[in-house]
């Protein structure tokens, strides 16, 4: 499945400062849908190069990270259970506190 994955708010530092990643995620045999739960572990394995604890905590994104699927908060689409579709854009953004 072809997806665009973006990092912002400092999370890009975990993947060598690359913000936008165009990726192909292999599907499990016989399945044509990918859940966010599966994508998180795929991202953790394939894109996060350092300090993985700054991206995930247990099986969830760490506190302070907003997850957006096609510019929509993933809380509105079912969080970990959200099913992704071809060409979806997923953004992981860390909340900022400075000013």
């Amino acid at each position: 499945m072809h997806l665009t994955i973006e990092f912002g708010g400092g999370l890009e530092l975990l993947c060598q400062s690359v913000k936008i990643h165009h990726v192909d995620v292999d599907m499990k045999p016989g399945e044509d849908k990918l859940a966010m739960r599966d994508l998180l572990s795929w991202v953790q394995t394939n894109l996060i190069k350092e300090r993985p604890e700054m991206f995930m905590k247990d099986d969830h994104v760490r506190p302070g990270v907003l997850v957006l699927i096609n510019d929509c908060d993933w809380e509105l689409s079912g969080q970990l259970d959200t099913l992704l579709e071809e060409k979806d854009v997923i953004v992981f953004i860390s909340t900022l506190h400075g000013g």
Binding site: E53, M54, P63, G64, S94, T95, H97, G99
Partner: peptide, 20 residues
Amino acid sequence: CLFPTPPPTTACQRCSDSGV
């Protein structure tokens, strides 16, 4: 509602450390 749990301290960048 958005951030019920505070992020780890190490995730909070300050302008005096990270620049702006």
